[in-house]
Write a protein that binds this DNA or RNA. Sequence first.
DNA 1: ACCTGAACACCGTTCAAGT
DNA 2: ACCTGAACACCGTTCAAGT
Lengths: 229, 229
Amino acid sequence: MPRLPDPQLAARRRREILEAALVCFRRRGFHQATMQEICAEARVSPGALYRYFKSKSDIIAAIAAEEHAQIEPLFQSLAAGASLLDTLEILAVDWLKKFADDDAPLIADVFAECVRDRELAAEITRNGMALQDRLVEAVRTAQAGGELAADLDPVSIVRLLFATLDGLGFRVAVLRDITPEAAAAELMTMLRRFLSPTAGVISHPQNDIQRIKRAPRRAASKTSQETSP
Amino acid sequence: MPRLPDPQLAARRRREILEAALVCFRRRGFHQATMQEICAEARVSPGALYRYFKSKSDIIAAIAAEEHAQIEPLFQSLAAGASLLDTLEILAVDWLKKFADDDAPLIADVFAECVRDRELAAEITRNGMALQDRLVEAVRTAQAGGELAADLDPVSIVRLLFATLDGLGFRVAVLRDITPEAAAAELMTMLRRFLSPTAGVISHPQNDIQRIKRAPRRAASKTSQETSP
DNA sequence: ACCTGAACACCGTTCAAGT
DNA sequence: ACCTGAACACCGTTCAAGT
């Protein structure tokens, strides 16, 4: 009876190739790095590589999937009673620092690739949504505890937070007109004002004609998917 | 005496090629679209195309350069006394709508290409900064008029605004969990609270240990470049 | 001056052939 | 079962040759 293929070896080979690909992508970006380079770095032939990854963007998907792991400690310290805003500051600095490092090309390429590659986008979305849902829960807790304004949609808050983080990441990586630390500080200044329980809303005499539109305050939804009309 | 090369013809050819490239990029994205396709669409040979654009990404740069034009009316209505926040809402909806259309791949590719292509990044930065500087001026005016909180750095405000717009654009284009209109509404809710002259800052008993960091309130700088340390 | 299109130096991916 | 590496079908770009 023939033995099943060794899963140990397969897993190790996958890891070796992934590690080699990371080196190459960091060095030259996703599109500039060639499969030949990755093969050389991983010391395998092209044929062998295609045993473990069915395409170049399959490698990117695998890398992106692994990225979502080391934020776990943050949720644990949240559970231990840490302030949400202080925890978010740590998250922000961590995230923005990645853009300043040589990871910038990597992240930008993943973004761009997502627009067309539906499978990759689905993978990213799945991971991102999981993280997002946990943060939404944390925001809800903070609202109940009086730390944040209670009249804002938690899903909306988290979406704005993530959007600003992505946008600031782009600035840090491309325009380079601000450091990760300064960007995170600016973000926190904004969040503290935005989310303050006692915040007022602009209503200046000059604006009287045009009524201020408020975002529809619907019942809090379980996942952000439900936010779309 | 030989006549100079006809600038009329050159300009027309450039425009034809640019238009053809736009069709191809919108259809398949920057990297998937081939030069052969663009040549076929523009009805010129590869050799002819390379007379007018020195590379594929040179075409992207030219497209990006043209994009920054139709926002002029917004600044005129601002000069005519329109409220800054109302004007920003129009700007936001316009910008976010582009991501929902077939322009999404185009914009995402420009972003990604910027990370490595330094010339392209410089081109984008130049245009972006010009727009940014004009908005910074508008924010300053609004602050002086009491429409916005006066204790915030105008450069910081505009940077956060642009960052959030870019990040929301990504959500609209890739995750597709929100419409351009809804995203713009969320953004405006945030901006009205964040920029309110009477806004409070979160200072909850639980946060007493960690002092709240404020962005350094330096003398207003002429260009945002000076914001980096 | 302006254009053509075959040719060049690559690229991601496959597959017959080895061990 | 696992791997090799030449071969395949392409790509962006160039350049001798035409008009």
